[in-house]
Design a protein around this nucleic acid. Sequence first.
DNA 1: AGTGTATCTTTACACTGTAAAGATGGCCGA
DNA 2: TCGGCCATCTTTACAGTGTAAAGATACACT
Lengths: 207, 207
Amino acid sequence: MDRGTYHHGDLRRALLTAARQLIERTGPSGSSLRAIARQAGVSPAAPYHHFEDREAILAALAAEGFEELGDGMRRSARRVREGAPLDRLQAAGVAYVGFAVKNPELFRLMFSGPLGDRSAYPELQRRAAAAFAVLQRLVGGSSQTPPGELPPRVALAAWSTVHGLATLLIDGRLGDRPSERRAAQIAREVTQVLGSGLRSFAGSAES
Amino acid sequence: MDRGTYHHGDLRRALLTAARQLIERTGPSGSSLRAIARQAGVSPAAPYHHFEDREAILAALAAEGFEELGDGMRRSARRVREGAPLDRLQAAGVAYVGFAVKNPELFRLMFSGPLGDRSAYPELQRRAAAAFAVLQRLVGGSSQTPPGELPPRVALAAWSTVHGLATLLIDGRLGDRPSERRAAQIAREVTQVLGSGLRSFAGSAES
DNA sequence: AGTGTATCTTTACACTGTAAAGATGGCCGA
DNA sequence: TCGGCCATCTTTACAGTGTAAAGATACACT
């Protein structure tokens, strides 16, 4: 088969990498459909044979991002195998923030991106849920929440904290964007505060 | 004097309210400069006499948002005057989330909005810092952090948590966007987890 | 080899942000 | 009271955008 070796040779892939370069270099405003096509060396209308929309390109990009984010958290958590469960949760949280600082524009796209109706991209939702499930498993919840349901409050608190810190950092709301090393340090400090809270909840029943 | 009663009668104000309506109704993509001008009943080029840019309009809108956000937190915190400091902090956090759920598009604009170089709008930064100072005061820090400096970790953790929860909620990442009442309940639950963490930190020295 | 069809290009249109030049009408000094 | 000034708004124009429609190209399969 080897689909994707017709005229250009996997233009779909080429468009995605072009888009990723552009979005990280010039922000979402610089990654117009035409610019992406230009970067990939094709005409402005060529992408329409591989994607519904300009939005669809961005949605595919975001889906990739969620995949990487989930992988990163899993890897980090596994590296502290000997540690307590909370240490593994913290490692995943630090990885979460690290991903955001390393790919700020992609991260923005993945969340508050210009994707209007998110339910139009089920694949995107699926991968986003999978990324969150990593955190949730580390908190101790057994299975993943079906999309649309609220996760248990502890997992939600953990997610909120790292997510909030990540967006505050990349939006420059805490001063100039920090280096990855510095970001990791900040993330450790903040998650430690949260960890104290989680420990207090260890005994209580969850609603 | 009464500046702003020339031909149209305070077009600047009219443009801002038009923009606010549009952004909340049709998202940021629907609030083009031309659409704003149309809604205000003027020609597409008229806004340029009151704002540098399309971005400048959005920046002014965001600044208003921060003002309202800060006021809302202050008001909520003051209403639980008899409560413990942590209760007042929680009230402010719930107000933070409430504001986001009530004005989702404005909230998005205020933070990860399409404002490229945020340092180009010092007024915006000033008001954003003022809003954060409210949270910081409630945590117990005495004065406000100069912009560019990292706030003490406890205040940062508090901010991160409510901010993260707010963005997760309005981005539909936790299922359909909840009602204001439901959002407040979720916010209370999450901030309670955080509160346990803060209590544990009450005695430690802060770096 | 010949044909079908996915892929890509060309062309076109409505829309965007914004620059430049012209029109309008309220305000201030005479 | 009047004349002129100048802020305000409009008109016109241009480059860039997303995307629809029709035409060209070249691979794949019979």
